[in-house]
Structures are given as structure tokens and as C-alpha cells.
């Protein structure tokens, strides 16, 4: 099951500040819903453990998160691949772009995700809603983190 989603969020901080936060593991960890662990394992590569619930399927994903196409302070691509055990898998990525707007920064994102196994079998009707909720939660928290300086 593939899904795509786009969105934008206006942040009250400079592009450089937003960029720094986007590259701060601790900030990302705090903002990713259900994130239990996020550790740097190499340059621009992290190991993550996160619990996600899609419809009736709740799974704890373990996987790699990679940052690619880095273009400081304008954007990057963050992509991940998670293995949810018997629940299936999820993989996907988001292209994040930063532009100056209204004295702050406009963050636009373009998500492409794919799920498989039991997640797709039982959760496919709910995947769009679930993904939107994850993105909303993330950016709400991220906006708060940016505002907190």
C-alpha cells in the first residue's frame, strides 16, 4: 500500500534555526510520535525504535533513518524503513524544504510511504488518516520545539 501526503507548516524562527533543529537528534526524538529510541549510528544515519498504531494493528518498528540530499539550510530528504515484526513493515520518506516567509520559515513536506504485511491487510483503509495524524503530531511538537528555541 503506497500513500502520499503533502503539507506545510509556518514556523516562527529563522531558516538556520529550523535547519539546526531538523538535524538535532534529541529534537527529532522528542517530536516523532511514539519514538522510544533514536541514536546516531553514522553520518546522517540513525537507528530508531518507534511504536505506531494503524487501525487495529499496533506495532513497534525498528529501523534505520537516513538523511540524504542535504542542502543546508534549505532542506533534505529524511527516509526510513521499519520492520514491525509480524505486523509487517513500513517505509517511506519525506522531502522537507524550507523557505523564508513572513519573517519566519515555511516548512513544506512531501511524504511518500509504503506499508506491507498485516499493516496493509488490516490497516490500509486507515493509513492515510494515521499518517496524517503522525505528521500533524510531529510538526505540532516540532513547532513547539522551535518556538522554545
Amino acid at each position: 500500500m503506497a500513500m502520499t501526503m503533502t503539507g506545510e507548516v509556518q514556523l516562527a524562527a529563522s531558516r538556520e534555526t529550523v535547519w539546526a533543529k531538523l538535524n538535532d537528534v534529541e529534537v527529532l526524538k522528542a517530536c516523532i510520535p511514539g519514538c522510544e529510541e533514536l541514536n546516531m549510528t553514522g553520518e546522517n544515519e540513525m537507528q530508531a525504535v518507534a511504536t505506531q498504531k494503524i487501525g487495529p494493528v499496533k506495532a513497534r518498528f525498528k529501523g534505520k533513518v537516513q538523511l540524504t540530499d542535504l542542502d543546508p539550510p534549505n532542506g533534505y530528504k529524511i527516509s526510513g524503513e521499519g520492520d514491525g515484526g509480524i505486523a509487517g513493515f513500513a517505509k517511506g520518506g519525506a522531502t522537507v524544504a524550507l523557505t523564508d516567509k513572513d519573517g519566519g520559515t515555511l516548512l513544506t513536506y512531501n511524504v511518500e510511504a509504503q506499508i506491507g504485511g498485516k499493516l496493509a491487510q488490516l490497516g490500509q483503509r486507515l493509513i492515510n488518516g494515521a499518517a496524517k495524524k503522525v505528521a500533524d503530531d510531529f510538526f505540532q511538537r516540532f513547532a513547539a520545539a522551535v518556538a522554545a528555541g
Binding site: 500500500m1 503506497a2 509504503q114 506499508i115 506491507g116 504485511g117 498485516k118 496493509a120 491487510q121 488490516l122 490500509q124 483503509r125
Partner: peptide, 14 residues
């Protein structure tokens, strides 16, 4: 099935 071979009608809900 979707084009990746995931079963979309995998329960009696669907």
C-alpha cells in the same frame, strides 16, 4: 492486490 502485491482486501471489513 495493490501493485506491490499487498493484499488490500485482507479482512471481512474489506
Amino acid at each position: 492486490y495493490d501493485k506491490e502485491g499487498q493484499l488490500v482486501t485482507g479482512s471481512m471489513m474489506d
